[in-house]
Simulated assay, not measured.
Amino acid sequence: MNTNPKSNLPETFRAEMARLIRCGFKLLPLGGGTDGKSPLIAKWAQENLTFKRILGPMHRRGIAMYGIRLADLVVVDCDIDDPALVAKMEARFGSSPVHVKSPRGVHLYYRLQGKPPNLRAEGFPVDLKTGPNAYVAGPHSVRPDGGLYWPLKGVLGIDALPALKTQTGALVAPVSPSAPILKGVRHEELVKFALKMVAHVASVEELKTDLRRLRDGLCENPESMPDSELSEIASWAWRRRLENRIFHCRMSEFRVHRQALDLLRGITGQEDALALYTRLVDLHGHTPGKAFPLSHRAMKEAGHTSLSRERFMTARRLLQRLGLLQLMSKHRAGAKLQTFALAMPLVDLPEIGKIARSEK
């Protein structure tokens, strides 16, 4: 007999929670407070909660948000979405196989070993969360305001977590006024920050507040950058969000041009070529004209293709013949990789169809 409560929570979400419990992680229900990050059970730290007790409060409130308790774990919680900051953390603490995108930044998971440092005191916008009374929102959680916690790299419970390296002394310079964003590039850098943060704030005013914090903490001569400039950046980014013109990484859609489907229709090898083309649009289509290397080995190791090398190369050549893939630079041994770019053909559909079929 199943004793778990019936739930309106997505089956995949509940299955992920059950999997984590089987892997030995201790969970707790979240959803309280204005941001949904407060536990829904009092005195949770003194209890080993069953799956039923975790799901019950979440079901009653209709909130798909849970926490992972950190008695034996440590999470490096980067408070801003900055790949350079993540790289600095991994340079200091070792590479983490599990990254989870939070509404503001990234969570890096490790096993606890030793006493973690206070990174806030060093000037980093980073918290190290650990201990029996600590927790972070788990992967696939959704805050009441729509903020997501989405897996970027690895899978908890499958990828073995390394111990956090706790050598004394910082290995990298902290983010501080001693290494500020220079005056000549402040506007451009804050525009980038705004585009990263706009999907995770509740209003344009909250975005302005975040930009002021970044200006005051990271920019050279912040007093010479007026609030009005920050308001213009925030308003511009907010308009792009309302117009659905923000690239949201994995939580987004992308378009496949129908002409590409028409070009491939009826051609031998169309399934492989379409699979490769769709994956390339997924990875690179959000940046028109972007040049990228295209290696079967790298694609396979990253899990982007299951094709054999022969089928991969055949599909690549077909996309090139159809004009959907353009060679941008040739390989130069030891110096430069061969690069490609996505494209659309400039000739009529019947003509390019004849070209492709004549070369079969």
Rank of each mutant, 00 (worst) to 15 (best):
G31Y: 13
V100G: 10
M89F: 04
P139K: 06
S102M: 13
V75M: 11
L108F: 11
D79K: 15
D77S: 04
T130A: 15
R111N: 08
L148C: 01
T130D: 10
M58R: 07
N133A: 11
G33Q: 12
R60G: 01
V86I: 08
K26G: 10
E90R: 02
G131H: 12
T130R: 11
Q113Y: 06
S102F: 10
I54D: 02
F51D: 05
E90G: 04
D82E: 08
A71V: 02
R69H: 03
G131A: 14
K153D: 00
I68P: 00
Y109P: 02
P116M: 12
K43V: 02
I68K: 09
D79V: 01
L156C: 01
N133D: 15
G94D: 04
S38I: 14
A71D: 15
M65D: 08
G62L: 05
L27Y: 13
D127F: 02
D159K: 06
K26E: 13
P57R: 14
G33L: 14
M58E: 03
K43Q: 10
H140D: 06
R120I: 09
V74G: 06
V86P: 00
V155G: 01
H59T: 10
K153H: 03
L49A: 04
L148W: 06
G67K: 11
V76I: 10
Y66E: 13
L119E: 05
N133M: 06
G105I: 08
G56K: 15
E47W: 02
K101Y: 12
R120F: 02
V126P: 01
H59L: 00
A45R: 09
S96Q: 03
G62F: 08
R53V: 03
L85G: 01
G154W: 06
H59E: 14
L40Y: 13
K26D: 10
P132E: 15
I54N: 07
